[in-house]
Design a protein around this nucleic acid. Structure first.
Lengths: 130, 130
DNA sequence: TTCGTTGCAAACATTTTGCAGTTTC
DNA sequence: GAAACTGCAAAATGTTTGCAACGAA
């Protein structure tokens, strides 16, 4: 619908932005990326919608890098690499998430597992070169 | 030396506190825990020393839980469980960290791996009961 | 008119920093 | 005296919220 498309214009733009990037952006990075198409979008709107998407399970938080929260529209379990030099966050699609561990955890701890995050840190290729 | 012991009285207390707990505390939690023995310790000192320990590699940051950073004096690789209900952070000593993945990551991505973190989230036994 | 979305500014929470005072060497 | 550590208060940072305005149903 055109009307509803208009009503959710900015909300959709935020989700689209997140879905079309591999940079695992922060709220501010999303805000910057949207600036050309939506010069009047406010940072509060970005925060509000990211928060909404998160509670709806449409996006995931990867935790904070240097004090700022980073998001990922890819909610499938996958592994990340965070560069301590440039704060880039990258997917590591080649590395398997050991899914069978979930049951081990539930058995040995009595906790109900709802999510799992495997993250490597270090220096990316670019930063090693320097 | 007694002198140096006195000079680093509070610094040592902070590290001891972190080493003697399994609660993976935040700065404020450390501050609270130290209150009985050191009623005059300031939160800024806790922050400053935690930050120092972190750069020295004596402690690890586990990232933020509900917006506050949590620390661990156990720097050996091990797995954590974070309860989304009560924000408790627990060790999962029974679960193996797949150490051999480090080389896979370096080979496939060209990144130099310096750390690895495997964290499960969900509801702990206590919170499930409710 | 009612509801949902937004921008703006203010509020908020956590963390960091400047500075002066103290202790140690 | 120089250097290191601390408390306090202020500042800085990232995030959330109240409110009025607007648009859609």
């Amino acid at each position: 619908m055109e009307q509803s498309a208009r009503q959710f214009r900015k909300r959709s733009a935020i989700l689209d932005c997140l879905r079309s990037t591999k940079s695992h952006p922060s709220a501010e990075m999303v805000h910057d990326m949207l600036h050309d198409e939506h010069p009047d979008i406010s940072l509060a709107t970005v925060y509000r919608n990211l928060s909404l998407f998160k509670t709806q399970g449409m996006i995931r938080s990867l935790g904070t890098v240097n004090g700022v929260e980073r998001f990922d529209a890819d909610t499938h379990p996958h592994v990340h690499f965070i560069c301590t030099g440039c704060a880039r966050v990258m997917d590591l699609p080649e590395v398997e998430v050991p899914q069978e561990l979930n049951q081990d955890v539930e058995k040995s701890s009595g906790c109900r597992v709802e999510g799992c995050q495997l993250t490597f840190t270090g220096l990316c290729g670019r930063c090693q070169a320097q």
